[in-house]
Design a protein around this nucleic acid. Sequence first.
DNA 1: CATGCAGTTCAAAACGCCTTGAACTATATG
DNA 2: CATATAGTTCAAGGCGTTTTGAACTGCATG
Lengths: 182, 182
Amino acid sequence: MKGYLWGPSAATSVRTPQSGWESMAIDAVGNVIEFWGFKRNQGRVWALLYLRDTALTAAEIEKELDLSKGGVSMLIRDLERWGVVLRVRTPGDASWRYRAETDLLQMARRVIEEREFAFIARIRADLAEARKLAEADATVEREKVERLRKMEAVAEATERALNVFLKTSRLDVGGMFERFRA
Amino acid sequence: MKGYLWGPSAATSVRTPQSGWESMAIDAVGNVIEFWGFKRNQGRVWALLYLRDTALTAAEIEKELDLSKGGVSMLIRDLERWGVVLRVRTPGDASWRYRAETDLLQMARRVIEEREFAFIARIRADLAEARKLAEADATVEREKVERLRKMEAVAEATERALNVFLKTSRLDVGGMFERFRA
DNA sequence: CATGCAGTTCAAAACGCCTTGAACTATATG
DNA sequence: CATATAGTTCAAGGCGTTTTGAACTGCATG
């Protein structure tokens, strides 16, 4: 949304000229992954690698997606850490190349399982603690404690729903991406 | 987190002195609702009204939660629009008062149903469009089209999972808050 | 061991969202 | 209808997150 000023001039040798539909798909994946709570550009990098089905260099990624050098480095680091992008060394080549390894939903699920559950658990604990304090205080009416209990139920419901969400997406996509190179 | 400088001096008559557990619970609800993609303070305002089980004035809300006048106005407008807070006029009182009407999850579900589904649907459409364009282009390998198809499946799975998520939370909490005044 | 390029780091800039506060409008009351 | 108080609006400011770009590190090669 920014660097479209210096379009496909002559200086740079664009390998694959961003065929309209490709960037459309790449951006769409960026949006899905943003919906899942990650960075848009993490999704775009993965989508590029997945679609091309080739190991690209950081410089190529940088050029295709119009990102900065540092940005690509950090994005790839994240994707590697999550195991959705693999770093490979091509024989006669000095630089690393990167390729998409598995699907993004798998990663999203894993990370959400770690992050979000801890977050919700924390909230539940806070509500439980608040209720305990209220119960200990004799001046607090029974009605109020009841309300606190109901709010706890909301947090619990959220947690349960999140659980089902993750499980569903697993069943749904599971085995769909299991193998796609080779 | 800011205006604790002018504590409970003498000028203002604090009705209920923020009993520790109360603000703990209020903040917890703020966090849950933020998790659901809303503003933290929307959740806090609702939680205050719900816990107090009394119709409060904007000025009271402003003081209790340490918000600005304008902020309270906008937060209440949103909550009213979503039907979780009701505006009531007390007889001998010049100003409006506000009270919690139903639970927050209901609202979250409704809003998400409108907003997020549209968002995901848009993404799916983009991916479908990209695939169509790719299919029309004879130079595009079959393999690549297949990959586009798989990415579409991810968006579809997301939509389906979102659906289950909402349904689950409905069954889970539904009828728990149905009526609580009177 | 000097050179050059790939990759990393991180402070600063850009960006987006939320909140503030002052000006303004609406409403009730004497 | 004048005044006071409640409520709304919105530009400006604040704040957290993401991105940039320049300095730096590491590595391979001659």
